[in-house]
Every structure is written in structure tokens, then in C-alpha cells.
Amino acid sequence: MTDAKVSTPVTATGLEPALEPASSSRAQKRKARKNAAKDPKRKITWDRVWAQRALLAMSVPLLMYQILFKYVPVYGWAIAFQHYKPGRGSIWNQRWVGLENFHNLFTGVNGERFRRVVVNTMGQSVLTLVVGTLGAIVLALLLNEVKNLPFKRILQNITYMPHFLSWVIVASLASVALSLPSSGGFINQGLMSLHLVDHPVLFLTQPNYFWGIVAGTSLWKELGWNTILYLAAITAIDPGLYEAAEVDGAGRYRKMFSITLPSIRPTIVVLLIINSGWILSTNFELPYFLGNGLVSDKSETIDVFVLRYGYQLGNYSLAVVAGIFKTIVAVILVGSANLAAKRLNQETLV
């Protein structure tokens, strides 16, 4: 191993003061980045590119690869403007129909159904997100109060468990739990033994329960898992803060609301942002598995519509229009959530 030959420009810039100043101020950061762009050492020159050929070899093929599998499929969006029939072969042999499919889906024959589908998707997602976030924060606060560490670890292990089950299994367990007592429906059994209901409730046949069932089942699956990051954030809080508060006579609840919650606020914001981007994409499996003809007015989401009505019934063109709608809304939602977070001066994703 020779040491003198190490490419000097790279090492030199690598040892420069860090590109990003540690300061959290947004304006300062932007200024620093602008200065960096003017700095001749930061300019992209062929010398620098050549010096970094190893890093490029590590990343560029994978970048191409990702572009092939994530961005290239966009050519399939052409189907949205066609009357697509799989039998006609490739997408270049199809009949072009302009915006007909868009009219059909948004205002025409399928307009009412699609609006219902969008409302269901957002309703189920928002309910799941709100219930899930609140539940996880409360559970994290309560777990944090458990001082017996082995007991705490066992509790965590048990509450993480459902996260590792597949949605297929979870849906299967939920359909049994919600069924009649004779088929193992322990929820009905419990309600009846508490005399809350006289007759077993056929949960999965009642449209009005469906969003709640989706949110409740997701809560069951992800509650424990979602506490991990909150618990980590709580552990990172300086214990000195609590000691100072105790000296000032703060009680348990005061400390919770004035120290713990404000301290984990950045975590809450970042997680909400990440999840808001998925607001039209989540909730695929549960409505697909648990939905049925009786509750389809409340169960059908965009993804279910795409899979059932589009892929399985061969209406490719409409399914692609619905998919385009979903993707565009998702990108807009994430973009604006990121902007909002920047204004709050919180961490962002990019």
C-alpha cells in the first residue's frame, strides 16, 4: 500500500471545513451553499469528476438501474390516452382516444364511483394516520414511565410483534376476530359478555364501520412499532431538563407536557410529513382483503379500484388514469409538506 499517491484534490476538499455548517438556520445554510457554488474548488470540473471515478462507478450504474425501474415505466402512461386492449399487442398498436378516459373517470360514467373512491382513500388514510400517531405518542409516553426495564422490554417485544405479520395474515386475523362468536369472533363475544350489545354485530357487512375497522386494524398492527422512534427521541432528552423541572416542583404530567412532548415535536413533524406523502397510497391490502360487495361504497380505495377494476377486469386505460392522478397528488402533497416543514425550521427529507 503506497500512501503518497492518494489523489490530492479529493482529499484536500474532503478535509475542508464541512460543506454544511452545523448551524440549523435556514438562511445561513442557503448562504453557505451559494458560497460553496462560487468556490472554485466546488465547481464541477473534469478533473474532479475523474478523481471521483470510483464513487461514480459505485453510484451511476445503480442510478441508471433505478431510473429504468422507477421512472421509465412512465411510458405506460400513454395508455391513459388510448383505448387499450391487451390483445392488440404493444402500446404502439393501440387506438388513441385523447382525453376520453380522463373525462370518463372524473366526470363521466365512472365519475361518481371515482369520487367515492378518492373520498374513501383519504378518509381511511387520515383516520389511520391520526389514530396511529396519537396512539403511538400516548403509548410511548406510558412505556417511558415503566421503570422496570425487563418488563418494559417484554412489553415492547410483544407490541412490536404484529408489525412483522403480513397484511394477508392480519386481514385473516381481523376477519376472524370480527366474525360471529361461533366462528371465533372474540370481539362480539367480549361485547356480549359486557352486555354492550344484545346480538352479535356483523361488523364486516356494515359500510359505516369500515373506515373504523381499517384504522383499528392498522392501529393494532403498527402501534408498538410506531413508538420506536418516539421512544428513541425521548431517550435523547437531556435528563438535566427533568431534574431542573423537579427542583422547580413540576409533577409527572407537567414534565410530560412541558418537556417530553415539546422535545419530541421534531420527530412528530418529520413522521407526519413522511406519512402525508403516502396518504393516497396506503391502505391497499386491508380494503382489498376485507372489502366485499356489501361495503364497497366505503371500502373501495384507489389502489383497490386499480387492481380490481383495472388489472383484473382488463380496464387498463382507466386504471392508468387513476394511477396518474394518485402519483401527481402524492408528489404535490410531499412537496408542500416539505415546504411547510422548512418554514417550521424542522428537518426535511431532502
Binding site: 421512472y71 412512465v74 395508455i79 403516502w278 387492481l307 394511477g323 402519483t327 410531499v334
Partner: peptide, 16 residues
Amino acid sequence: VLTMYFDAGLIPNYLL
């Protein structure tokens, strides 16, 4: 990072 949010969709992916 954008691929976390940008998804061409089920049927375009299938066609690819």
C-alpha cells in the same frame, strides 16, 4: 428520494 413518492403505477410497472 423522489422514487419514495413517485410511482408510475401498478399497470405501467407490470408492462415494464
